[in-house]
Design a protein around this nucleic acid. Sequence first.
RNA 1: GCCGCAUUCGUCUAGUGGUCCAGGACAUCAGAUUCUCAGUCUGAGGAUCGCGGGUUCGAAUCCCGCAUGCGGUACCA
Length: 506
Amino acid sequence: MKRVRVRFAPSPTGPLHIGGVRTALYNYLFAKQNGGDFILRIEDTDQTRFVPGAEEYIIEAFQWLGIKFDEGVHIGGNYGPYKQSERKPMYKQYAMQLIENGWAYFAFDTPEALDAKRKEAEAQKKTFQYDAHTRDGLCNSLALSAEEVTRRIQSGDPYVVRFKYPADLDIHVHDLIRGEVVINSNLLDDKVLYKSDGMPTYHLANIVDDHLMEVSHVIRGEEWLPSAPLHVMLYQAFGWEAPQFAHLPLLLKPDGNGKLSKRDGDRLGFPVFPLQWKDPKSGEISSGYRESGYLPEAVINMLALLGWNPGTDQEMMDLDTLVSLFSIEKISKSGAKFDLEKAKWFNHQYIQKTEDDKLYPLFEKELQKHGVQPDKDYALRVMRMIKERVHFIPEFWEQSSYFFVAPTEYDPQVIKKRWEKDTNEHLKKMMDIILSVQPYNKETAHDLVMDYVQSHGLNMGKIMNSFRLALVGTAKGPDLFEIITTIGVEETKARVDRAVKEIIVN
RNA sequence: GCCGCAUUCGUCUAGUGGUCCAGGACAUCAGAUUCUCAGUCUGAGGAUCGCGGGUUCGAAUCCCGCAUGCGGUACCA
C-alpha cells in the first residue's frame, strides 16, 4: 500500500476562502487518519494575480485553526521547493517531453486571433474549440512545416504548448465521491499546458508536482471536476500512476444558490474568511472568524459537518475525534449552504466547553480593548457568571462591562416601563436594608429585601428591574443579588445614589 | 449554446428494496425556570423524499426521461 500523501494547494491571490479551509481540513483529516503526510504547496503560476501577503495569510490562518502541515513552503520538506514559481525551471522539460512523445504541440496563435475565432463561432451560435477538428487550420506545429516551426521558435516568436487530445476517446475518471465520470475527448479543448511567459498552467504544474511529491490522493473542490479528464490523460501521457481523485461539493451562499463568495459575508453578516483581511490595493477590509469572536475549534467542527457526517448523531467533535471518524465515503455529493445560526450554536457550545484558564486570556483581551485592566480573580468570577450567555467573544464585554465600569446611561425604555414616582424612595430604603446586613450576606440581604417589597405591596417586576437598571443600565444580566455581591455593597450604594439623582419621573 | 455534477423538513443531514405514512441537529413555536435578558430543560409543528414514467409483491432507495440548480467551457487557479 502506497503511503498516503495529500496536499492543499492554494493560489496566493487573496485571503483564503472558508471553502478552501474546508478542503484543507478534509485533506488533513484524511492524511492523519491514514498516518500520512499533509503538504502545503503554493500554486503561484499566474504572476499577474499574485497578491502580496496572501501566502503569509494562509499560513497564519492554519496556525490559528490548529491545522498542522508535515511539509510545505513555510516548513520545508524532502520534496521541495513547495512554491511553483521556485520550481519554474523544471516544468519546461516535461512540456517538451510531451511534445516529443506526440502528446502535445507548439501553438503560435495570438490571444487576439483566438478571441476572433471565438467571436466568429459565437455569431454562428457555435462554440470554437481548439481540438482535433480545428487544429489543422490554426497556427501550430501540427499544421505548420517543421522548418517554419523551428524558424518561429528561433526568432523568438511567443508560443504555448497545448495538450493533444486523441480524437473520440472516452476518458474515465474514477472519483471517490462520485464514482465513474466519463467524457468524450471530442468535447474537450486542447488545453494550454505551458504559457508563453515560460510558466506552466495549473494543469501541467499540478500533475508534475503531484507526481514528484508522490501525492496519493487529490482531494479538491468540485470546480475541478471538469478538468479531471485532462489530468487523467496527462498522467497517462507521462506514463505515471495517477493519484485517486475526490471532488468535494461546493459551499453555497445561505440565500439563494451559488458559490459562497467574498461579498456574501459582509452582506449577510458572517465572515467568509478565517482571519480578517485588508486588501492591499483597495484597503477594503473583510471580516474574519477570528476577529468576529469564533473559537477555532468551533469553526473546524462546523466546517467538518458542512458536507460530511460521521453517520451517527454525534455533532460535537474536536480535531482528533474528526480524524478518527472521518471517511471520504460519507462526504455528501451536493453543495451545502452555510448556516450562520448553526455556526453561532457551535461557537456557544465551544465557549461552554472551553476550560476557564484557556478562555480567560480571550476575556482579558476584550476587557483591555475597552480600557479595563482587570484583577484576575475578580474578572474570572465575572467570566464564569456570564459565559453561559455569550455566543461570540466580543459579547464578553457587552455582557459584563457594568462589572467593571458603572453605567452612565439608563435605558429610557426601561425607565418608562418600570420607574415610578416613588421608586427613588423605595430604592433608598432597600439600599439601607442591604447596608444593614452586617456582615454582608447574600441570602439574608435577598430575604430582607423581598420582605420589604412584599410588605409594601410593591410590584416585584417594577421595583426589581428599577434596581437592576440602577446597577446595570439596562434590564439584562444575571441574578441581581449575584451582581450586588460581586460589585460589592459600597459600589451598589454609589450606583443607586447616582441613579436616584439622575432618574426623575413625574 | 455545449459538457459535467447534483436534487430528502427553512438549513445541515440520516437513510444503500420491506423495521420509514422518513430519524437527528440548528432554526421556529409553546410550556417550565419568574426581577430582566440570555441560557437551560420539556414538548410541538415542519419533508406525499424535484416531477413523470417504469422494474418489483413492495422504492426515498434500482432504471429511463424531464425540470431546476450549480460548476466548467481563459496563455485563472
